[in-house]
Write a protein that binds this DNA or RNA. Structure first.
Lengths: 196, 196
DNA sequence: AAAATACGCTAACTAACATTAGCAGTATAA
DNA sequence: TTATACTGCTAATGTTAGTTAGCGTATTTT
């Protein structure tokens, strides 16, 4: 078939990874086959294994890339000296940006992580739990400081995260799509719903 | 193995359907196998086919049960003579109730519908599109009547629906769980975010 | 230029999958 | 009680899956 084109200093493995995220997003991890992936990449299925260890390696690379990215941003936000509502707004904007820019990876991480194998599965779940707890702490801080309504912080986190991960439907319905406008609308609804 | 117990006037087919929803929810449609389902039901895999036509029939029965249920409730709400915010609150409560009471079916309908086969797939997508449009119309009506902030109604629908479908995480984190409290928190955040 | 490594190919393997055929026992209705 | 439909079983079929082995060619390194 010919070899994988390796342009703009991304390795062959990175190309496979990127294409696999697109495929996993479209078909779902289980329904996506290595033969399909190979065809997209422009190579025979067996050739993929010169670059990757297994199908499941692709999934866990995708998931942990996203998780690490999220965790790093949370570090930044926590370090900041500003009120809780602003921190939350910043988080929401970051998450929406991530959804818009790295759509496939984030989507796969959100919806397909359950097919991770041990020990990655447990590790991933732990990271996710921690992220949510840190998010909830910021909300609780806001409630204590009377910036935010008295609500259950866990539920609020859940509402925010799932509202954002739902952006995929948006993607499908409007092809030309204004990330900024989306952000402003969601901030209005979500931050508006929290503000006292 | 023995035959399927058919207690409290539910047919064998209904038992299989119920169990399949649980299995599809836990493993995902593609990853769930008929052999697993058979074992759960207490029978050999081949025996299932005395009651159902195929694996995919199970999925489309689940999805269309939910879709029909949703559509019927939307009829009710639209017929009502009340302000938009109240209608929206009613819809949100209904959707949360559905998520809490028929958890598996709703979850599967939400996350696994893409594995429907034609012509069911197109049909389902159409029904879903219509439901969302009707929901958005109620929000737009509220905006016109100045009950609701000036936001993009489509985005608002998306935020609400995905926030609710995210209740699954809740399910996992707290086993003993108060549906009413969840409802009040979500109404506060979501309706609060819309109200002018 | 020679040696070593990277890469892609064909062919094959094993496992799991949904589903069907055909047969036997069991409940139901005549 | 006999006939009919129902329900379950074993065995088998055809597909598709992920992955490996082994070989040849291209590229990179020495």
């Amino acid at each position: 078939m010919g070899r994988i084109k390796t342009e703009n200093n991304s390795s062959r493995k990175e190309i496979i990874l990127k294409k696999s995220a697109e495929l996993f997003k479209e078909k779902g991890y289980k329904a996506a086959s290595m033969r399909e992936l190979a065809e997209i990449v422009g190579v025979e299925a067996a050739s993929l294994y010169n670059h990757i260890r297994s199908k499941s390696e692709l999934l866990h690379l995708i998931c942990f890339n996203v998780a690490t990215h999220y965790s790093a941003f949370m570090d930044e936000v926590e370090a900041e000296k500003s009120n809780s509502l602003y921190k939350i707004e910043k988080l929401i904007r970051f998450l929406i940006d991530g959804m818009v820019e790295n759509f496939e990876e984030v989507y796969v991480c959100d919806r397909e992580w359950k097919y991770l194998t041990e020990p990655y599965l447990s590790n991933f779940q732990a990271q996710r739990r921690i992220f949510r707890k840190r998010f909830a702490s910021i909300i609780e801080e806001g409630i204590r400081k009377k910036e935010i309504k008295k609500i259950d912080a866990t539920t609020a986190v859940l509402v925010i995260l799932h509202a954002i991960s739902g952006i995929e439907s948006w993607h499908r319905s409007k092809q030309k799509f204004d990330g900024k406008e989306l952000q402003e609308n969601m901030i209005t609804i979500l931050v508006g719903g929290l503000k006292k």
